[in-house]
Structures are given as C-alpha cells and as structure tokens.
Amino acid sequence: MATGDDLRRLALALDGTVEVPHFDRAAFKVSRIYVTLAPDGCSANFCFSPEDQEFRCLMAPDALSPVSNAWGRRGWTTADLSRLSLAELAGALEAAWRLGAQKKPRRR
C-alpha cells in the first residue's frame, strides 16, 4: 500500500524533479508537471501517454482511472494510492517522469 509520503519521496528522487504548488495540490515537475498529489495524500493524478494510460488502467482498474474530462483524454490518470504497491507507484512515477521530462514543442 502506497501513501502520499511515498509518492513525495520517490518523485523527489527522480532527476531534476521539484515540488511546486498547483492550486490546492502539490505538483512534481521536471520540464513540466507529471504528477499532482491531493491535499489529503490519498490520491494523485499522473500524466501518462494515452496508450500508457489505457494499458495501466487495464492492468490496475481498481487503482487507476482516467480523469473524467478533457485532461483524461490527454492521458491524465487518477490513482488511489492505497491500492498501489510501492513497485507500482515507482513504475507509474517513472513513466510519468519520462513524459514530463520531454521538452514542450515550441509554438509558432
């Protein structure tokens, strides 16, 4: 069973990650935000690619689900941390971190 403290510790161990406020949540980012932690530390929103989101939600439907709006269609996924093992949490963080580390395309 993972916790918000586990998420914070594992996320901050990933290269270049910083914690910043994001509305009422704590956000963890490299080039961009890749995960946010709810104030109660019980849930988090991860940014996955849509393909990775689909796979992860199929593998852990009791723990992961797409955010129910346009952000969810872009890969943002809600996790019930108590339903994730530490290994699952670490894998989710690494996948989201890799995506967050990519540079944003420049607008023309």
Rank of each mutant, 00 (worst) to 15 (best):
L81F: 04
Q102V: 06
R106H: 09
A26V: 10
R106K: 14
S43K: 14
V30F: 07
T77W: 03
T17C: 11
T36V: 12
D40F: 09
R83E: 02
L99C: 04
S82L: 05
A95W: 02
D80Y: 05
R73S: 15
D62H: 13
W97R: 07
P50F: 09
L93A: 05
D15C: 07
L14V: 02
A2Q: 00
S68K: 15
R106W: 09
A11W: 01
A79W: 02
G16Q: 05
A90N: 11
A96T: 01
S65M: 11
T78F: 06
P105L: 07
V35K: 00
N45A: 15
D24K: 13
G91R: 14
V35Q: 00
L7N: 05
G100W: 02
L64E: 04
R83T: 05
T77G: 01
A79V: 01
T78P: 03
N69T: 10
L10H: 03
D62W: 07
P105W: 07
E94I: 00
E19V: 03
G16R: 06
A101C: 12
F23A: 10
R8F: 01
F55Q: 14
A87W: 05
K29R: 15
A26W: 09
R32K: 13
R108T: 06
D5P: 01
A44F: 03
P50Q: 07
A44M: 02
P105N: 07
V18L: 10
D62V: 07
R73N: 15
A79C: 01
Y34E: 03
R9G: 00
V67I: 11
A63L: 02
L99A: 07
A13N: 11
Q53I: 04
R74M: 14
R108S: 12
V67E: 07
G4C: 08
K104W: 10
A79E: 00
D52G: 10
N69L: 11
V35M: 01
S43E: 12
A44D: 01
D52W: 11
Y34P: 03
W71E: 07
F55D: 13
D5L: 09
Q53E: 04
R73L: 14
G75L: 01
F55I: 15
R32N: 05
R106Y: 06
L86T: 03
V20M: 08
P61N: 14
K103V: 14
D24A: 13
A26Q: 14
S85Y: 06
V18E: 14
A60W: 09
A44W: 02
R98C: 08
L81M: 06
L99N: 05
V18R: 15
A60E: 09
G91M: 07
K103A: 15
C47M: 13
E88M: 06
E54A: 15
T77V: 02
L89T: 00
L93T: 04
K104T: 14
A27K: 08
A27I: 05
P105R: 13
S31Y: 07
S68C: 09
L14Y: 05
T78L: 07
A44T: 04
S82K: 12
G4D: 02
G75Y: 06
M59V: 01
R9I: 00
V18D: 10
V30R: 15
L58G: 15
Y34N: 04
G100S: 06
M59Y: 05
L81C: 04
V18I: 15
W76M: 00
S82P: 03
L12W: 11
D80L: 09
V35S: 02
S85L: 03
L14K: 08
Q53H: 08
